[in-house]
């Protein structure tokens, strides 16, 4: 599978357009995701789609969603981790929108070369997400279905941007730093200041996010 950003129509310096597909079925009670949304929703070149607001009865408008995908360079799922996966809406979205002939198959080239990642919040502690921890797998391992889905669609999969211990992040005073990282990540992606090549093998995007950022938009090392 070729991941060739040069095949994209934009020149290296143009900002990337980012689509955040946000799914949270009870936003009024959210402590972790809500502030992330509030901080990033109005960022330049970032489009937020609140899927549960848009499709309260799960009647996803396939054409509209596909059109949005075509208009963006980075696709992000933002969601709380529910049963080691996404909330149902995002699964429904995949089932409906990633059609044969659009996203995959011999003629399905619409998503080729786009960047994909998941920004998730998990209730479990960081230590639980390891081979020896209660959950036995790392968060990146658990999200392998998303990783493989992205690959099948010809997208470049970035490691997850994950917050652990999300239920206590506010009480422990960790949320502000996470939200700041979130904004930093999005703006860096937009302005091409994220070192993609070095990011690819990481377990999480926000393990030392600083080290992945470059000063200028010059270093396009994805190829």
């Amino acid at each position: 599978m070729s991941a060739d950003p040069a095949s994209q129509s934009f020149a290296g310096q143009e900002p990337r357009r980012i689509l955040v597909l946000f799914a949270h079925p009870s936003l009024d009670r959210s402590e972790a995701n809500a502030p992330m949304v509030a901080a990033a929703r109005d960022l330049e070149a970032v489009t937020y789609v609140d899927l549960y607001a848009e499709y309260p009865a799960f009647e996803i408008d396939i054409d509209r969603e596909q059109q949005l995908l075509l208009e963006h360079d980075v696709i992000c799922f933002q969601h709380p981790l529910y049963w080691y996966s996404t909330p149902a809406m995002l699964k429904e979205w995949q089932d409906l929108v990633l059609e044969h002939g659009f996203a995959y198959g011999s003629k399905g080239t619409a998503l080729q070369g786009k960047l994909f990642f998941s920004a998730t919040t998990a209730g479990g502690a960081e230590s639980a997400y390891s081979a020896r921890g209660e959950n036995h797998f790392t968060i990146r391992e658990l999200l392998h279905p998303l990783e493989q889905t992205a690959q099948l669609c010809g997208m470049i999969y970035l490691p997850p941007f994950a917050l652990f211990g999300a239920r206590t992040a506010v009480d422990d005073g960790r949320i502000a730093a996470h939200v700041a990282d979130w904004v930093r990540l999005l703006t860096a992606l937009r302005d091409r200041r994220l070192d993609i090549a070095r990011a690819l093998p990481r377990p999480r995007l926000n393990d030392n996010l600083e080290s992945l950022l470059t000063a200028a938009a010059a270093s396009e090392e994805e190829r």
Binding site: I60, I62, D95, L96, E99, H100, Y104, G105, S106, K107, G108, T109, Q112, L152, G154
Partner: peptide, 17 residues
Amino acid sequence: ERGWTPPPKGYRTTRED
């Protein structure tokens, strides 16, 4: 029947580009 459409039988994952 637009939604939940399975791929055609015997489809290829490689693209013709």
